[in-house]
Each structure stands twice: as C-alpha cells, then as structure tokens.
Amino acid sequence: MTEIIPPTTRPGLPWPLIVGLSALALLWPLAELIGIGQGAPRALTIIAIIAVTWICVVGLGGVPRPVPVLALTGLGHGIISMIAAAIFGGFDQPVWTIFIALGIDAFWGAVAGLMALGIQKIWGSRA
C-alpha cells in the first residue's frame, strides 16, 4: 500500500498587507502636496516612518515569512513610487535604471524583513 503524505501547508503571502505597506510610498508626493519642504530632513523623516512602520507591523504582528513579505513590499513601494513620479512629472531617468531601482527597493525591504524576523524571534522568546 502506498502512504498518502498530506501536503505541507505553508501560509500564503498576505497580499493586502504587502500592497498596504507598499502604499506608504505615497507619503513622498503627499509631503510635496501639503508643502513640507524638500531636503534631507524631510527625506530622512519619511524613510524612518516607512521603515519603522514596516518593521513594527510585520515584526510585532507576527506575519509569517517576514523577509519575502517585506522584500515584495519594497518592490511594490518602488513600483508605486515610479508611477507617482511619472504622474507628477518627476521621472526622467533612463529605462534601464528602473530595474536597478526596483532591485535596491527589494533589497532594503529584505533588510527590513530580517529586522522584523529578529523582532519576531525576540518577541516570541518572551511570550
């Protein structure tokens, strides 16, 4: 007789969460529209808000597979940023740079995912 092995159940990716966290890319044009000045202070503030939100939501929320989730979030962030830049007239880069920029966004998302994973490990050990 053959033994039936049940398929492993691996949780799917939380696509609504990925899209929602990616949408934080809209903080950039929103800051511009409401008149927050340009420069390093604004950029660092927006980057910090986005990074802390991603890491805390995924890390403290116990989202399964945080590294791929936030890598895809970074990719989605890059796509949304490019679309917003095209709409608002700020995208005048060569097409080949799109792939490099998206790769960098996915990389930083994966780094945030590693941080969220670390939070999950620490938080889980305390529970």
Rank of each mutant, 00 (worst) to 15 (best):
T2C: 02
I5A: 06
P6E: 14
P7Q: 11
P7C: 00
P7W: 02
T8F: 11
T9N: 14
R10K: 15
P11Q: 09
G12Q: 10
L13N: 03
W15A: 05
I18D: 00
I18W: 04
S22A: 12
L26Q: 01
L26K: 01
P29T: 07
L30V: 14
L30H: 06
A31I: 10
G35E: 15
G39D: 10
A40L: 15
R42F: 13
L44C: 02
T45D: 10
I47Q: 14
I47R: 08
A48W: 08
A51G: 09
V52Q: 08
V52M: 13
T53K: 04
T53D: 04
W54Q: 04
V58C: 09
G59W: 01
G61C: 06
G62Q: 13
V63Y: 02
V63A: 07
P64L: 09
P64Q: 11
R65P: 00
P66W: 05
P68A: 02
V69S: 01
V69Y: 06
L72Q: 04
T73E: 02
L75R: 02
G76E: 07
S81P: 03
M82A: 12
A85Q: 10
A86L: 13
F91I: 02
D92C: 00
V95T: 15
W96F: 15
T97H: 10
F99I: 14
L102M: 13
G109K: 01
A110H: 08
V111W: 01
A112C: 09
Q120V: 05
R126I: 14
